[in-house]
Amino acid sequence: MRPARALIDLGALQRNYLLARQLGGGKAVAVVKADAYGHGAVRCAQALAPMADAFGVACIEEALELREAGIDNPILLLEGFLEADELPLIDAHGLWTVVASPWQLTALTDYTPRTPLTVWLKLDSGMHRLGLSPAQFGEALQALSRDPKIASVTAMSHLARADELDSDFSATQHAVFEAATRDFDGPTSFNNSPALLGWPGIRSDWVRPGLMLYGASPFPLDAPIPHVLSPVMQLESRLIAVRDLPAGEAVGYGARFTAPAPMRIGVVAMGYADGYPQLAPNGTPVLVDGQPTRTVGRVSMDMLTVDITALAKADVGSRVVLWGSRPSATEVAHICQTSPYALLCGLKRVACLYRDPESVG
């Protein structure tokens, strides 16, 4: 069988969630949208269910997958409902929904649920993607707060530049949010992963950790962040061939790498069809049998090549780690000029193997 696989440490996932809740000081929505950022939504939710205050997903399909798997924690639809006819499903499955657009507010007002609904009302504090304007938000907050069809309302917004520690835009957005909720005595939610890790002065009742749950940092490699995250995924494969390359010979498509001297080249069963970056440059770090080395040549659909000249014992069957504790997904993303979000969410055709948690307090 093809040896490409992702090892998922569910204990590390739990530790990262508990850190997020500790940093937030209140309750935390564990964001498991996009198949838990490529880690497997059902297994991750099952591991977090005993401790998670709620889960966050993008859409109702993701919520129903968790419900069908037996997850009975609160589940928040972060984009809200995309069609009004989803409201009966939200009602039937006890889902929480964001309301972020005027048409959603109208549809919600026109719907009579079996039991009162839990709503998170979203303010556009400056990101200008989803959310009500401050004027619309204030009116909607008052209307929903006195509507008997609504069980509770949480005021929320989303940060656009929290991963930029030298930007004052997060403080500007927070000021807009504070002004819009000044007369609201209900719960609030403002902090995402970068806000939790890098902006301790910004607080809210509910926090929404996403990327940090999976042990990856949203910040540049040299950012002064004191918190230690536990990598959850180790992406690995094995060498399936070894080649001796004379000086002056090229390897791979486009002859992008030419051997400056005689080299041993290892061929790894991992390519861009698995989610490894196609444009990873020569020199992207990997481990072979635990020893650091580098990629050489262009990444192809099913394979990539690595330099094993200095690794005398490396041979067919040697284990190759593409990212994990070392090198980290954040480091690989930086070198490949992408983000750890894209790396993790782009994983496909790779079997996930899960390590169950031992005990996390």
Rank of each mutant, 00 (worst) to 15 (best):
R326T: 15
T188L: 00
I71E: 11
D147L: 05
Y276E: 01
C44R: 07
E79W: 11
Q14A: 12
P262V: 11
G215M: 11
V306K: 09
P357K: 07
W206L: 12
V332F: 03
A49N: 08
L108Q: 00
T258Q: 14
L213M: 10
T154W: 01
M212L: 12
P246M: 09
G248A: 08
M51K: 12
I150K: 07
V306D: 06
L89Q: 13
A52Q: 09
D289E: 02
G198Y: 01
A143R: 14
G210A: 13
G215P: 03
G215K: 05
P194W: 10
R5K: 15
P340L: 02
N192H: 09
E249C: 10
D185E: 10
L82V: 13
A151V: 03
Y111E: 06
V99E: 01
R294T: 12
T172Y: 14
L95T: 12
V242F: 05
K313W: 11
D124F: 08
L353W: 09
G126F: 05
V332T: 03
F137S: 00
A241P: 11
L87G: 00
Q278A: 15
D163V: 04
A4R: 04
P3W: 06
V350G: 05
L108F: 09
D315I: 06
L117R: 04
N192D: 14
R256F: 09
L322E: 00
T305M: 12
A259G: 01
P281H: 01
S152Q: 15
V320M: 07
S101L: 13
G70D: 13
T97V: 12
C44L: 07
V360K: 00
V57K: 01
M212V: 06
P262A: 10
V232A: 07
K313L: 14
V98C: 09
L78K: 02
M233F: 08
P209R: 11
D72G: 08
